[in-house]
């Protein structure tokens, strides 16, 4: 695995003698998109607030790019770009003035860089207008722009797709993956849309009652999962496939067959079945989704 950009070491937060976050340890790596999942009130935002210095941890430390946030605040925070909860910007100013404002707070951000970011987030035509005229999706884009201005090593996005339309979400996802891979940025995304996290992230951490209870790698497309083919002749289908592909375990049911293969292999299997005259009515992936696992782990509590 690539080198770690962010390390949370025994991070704890007590508010009025109640422990909100329990000794959190977490490493985030270069080029990785990490998903942060948890029900309402689990401590996601509190953890993020501690990572950006809005809240002081009761114990523990946040190390970003090798320096400690608590000991060397200005140097450490200059490597972080973030949206915490809603992107609250100065709505009485234009989008461009907002970006000028934030660019003055970092070193060496040129006018060209500002324009580049505006183009990247797709706000070019409306950037001169006051933010109060923006839709939630446009504010979200401007929020992303201010987080990217100074080319951070670590990007924190709290509920980033909130207010984006489906096309916008897809575009956003592609963009995130691109900057993670090409610029080696480590990205932390918190979202209540589990299906999205699943599509966007390499790893997912599940937090509940202030404890990080599980970290898992999101399954790749080459990974084998369980697929069900609904067919007219299950026995025949089983025979055909066993002949065509060696070492595949196939379970024949009354109306269907089930087998463990990767997503890439599905079309080939289907082709063989069709060529051999098996009538295929449907193909379904019966892998348990992250959502099921998430609900299992958190005991089915309401997801924020």
């Amino acid at each position: 695995m690539a080198k770690s950009v962010v390390q949370l070491k025994g991070l704890r937060k007590d508010i009025k003698s109640k422990t909100i976050i329990h000794d959190l340890d977490l490493d985030l790596y270069e080029g990785e998109v990490f998903g942060f999942l948890g029900p309402n009130g689990a401590g996601k935002t509190t953890t993020i607030r501690m990572m950006v210095g809005l809240m002081k941890p009761t114990a523990g430390n946040v190390i970003i790019g090798g320096t400690s946030l608590l000991e060397n605040y200005e140097k450490t925070i200059s490597q972080v770009g973030a949206i915490v909860e809603n992107p609250e910007l100065y709505d009485y100013m234009s989008g461009y003035k907002n970006l000028i404002h934030f660019s003055r707070m970092h070193k060496g951000i040129t006018k060209e860089r500002i324009q580049e970011v505006i183009d990247q987030v797709g706000l070019t035509s409306r950037i001169g207008e006051k933010v109060k005229t923006y839709s939630l999706g446009m504010r979200q884009r401007l929020g992303l722009a201010q987080a990217l201005l100074h080319k951070p090593k670590f990007l924190i996005l709290d509920e980033p797709t909130n207010g984006l339309d489906p096309a916008g979400i897809r575009e956003f996802r592609t963009y995130l993956r691109k900057i993670a891979q090409e610029e080696g940025v480590s990205i932390l995304v918190s979202s209540h849309l589990l299906s999205e996290i699943e599509l966007m992230c390499d790893r997912v951490g599940i937090i509940q009652k202030g404890k990080l209870i599980d970290i898992r790698t999101v399954k790749e497309e080459t990974e084998k999962t369980k697929w069900t083919f609904t067919v007219k002749q299950p026995i025949q289908a089983k025979d055909v496939l066993e002949q065509a592909f060696e070492g595949v375990e196939i379970e024949a049911n009354e109306q269907s067959i089930s087998l463990s293969i990767s997503q890439d292999e599905v079309p080939e299997y289907n082709k063989v079945l069709v060529e051999q005259g098996v009538l295929v009515y449907g193909i379904a992936n019966t892998k348990s989704t992250l959502e099921d696992e998430f609900l299992k782990v958190t005991g089915g509590e309401q997801v924020g």
Binding site: G53, I77, S78, V84, E85, E88, Y90, M105, K107
Partner: peptide, 14 residues
């Protein structure tokens, strides 16, 4: 009151 303090406070300025 507007919440803009968050984006202001997470900058390299103490």
């Amino acid at each position: 009151q507007k919440g803009t303090i968050k984006l202001l406070a997470i900058r390299p300025a103490t």
